[in-house]
Design a protein around this nucleic acid. Structure first.
Lengths: 112, 112
DNA sequence: TAAATACATTGCAATATTACGATGAATAGA
DNA sequence: TCTATTCATCGTAATATTGCAATGTATTTA
């Protein structure tokens, strides 16, 4: 066990869940918020900013990158990360679709 | 280790990460989608719908409930779940705030 | 060439999550 | 009362995630 049964769900459901995982850790939220604010793609002074070890930050960046939410380019000696606009908006629209499918509905109409 | 260092992050970051965890599994997405569609709060014919064991569905429902995203009321013999409108909208607005803080910006202005 | 800088990767250790069988509690119907 | 039905909880096994020290790879500077 301990393994998600992805075959039971649709591709869309699995994909959305994977993207949500990107946000499912405060460090990754902090990293994304920092990138959103700094805009100018920042590298790991995130280490100083967040107080986690360099290896740990590197790992979180790797995950965000593998999901396509951020991209990295070589900047001299260092690595410069920034939000991947296309993917970011795709994620946003997928989430919006989920949230907006909720029709508040007089809720008493049935039984809750 | 294996333990998130929540003390390094803000309450908001931790809270958002926790809410994101609700969506970080396809089964929970499927459950939420079902509740959104059926509106009329459904109980565990989710078991038949999703193909996971009853105990597993129950556990996922418990997590969604503990996050406040759904609420359950006794319906005769069974338990009827439905989306918690208030919390759902709160989550939506928190996510929107994050996503909209992205100003696409001519991206060449700096270095990415 | 010898440090120093900036990251990525590897290899653990510890905790978290996922899944399910088994069992328990509560209610409804025979 | 006996038996389904419906669901929660417990215990357990398996896998995933988090975090970091140590190490490796380039590149720059002295």
């Amino acid at each position: 066990m301990g393994l998600t049964k992805t075959d039971l769900f649709t591709t869309e459901q699995n994909e959305l869940a994977n993207m949500a995982k990107a946000l499912a850790h405060p460090a990754r939220i902090a990293i994304l918020e920092h990138l959103l604010k700094a805009n100018a793609c920042i590298n790991s002074d995130l280490v100083a900013e967040l107080g986690l070890a360099q290896a740990t930050i590197s790992q979180h960046l790797k995950e965000l990158k593998s999901l396509g939410l951020i991209s990295g380019t070589i900047e001299g000696v260092s690595m410069s990360y920034c939000i991947n606009a296309e993917r970011w908006k795709y994620f946003e629209s997928r989430l919006n679709r989920l949230f907006q499918s909720y029709s508040p509905d007089p809720c008493n109409s049935k039984r809750c």
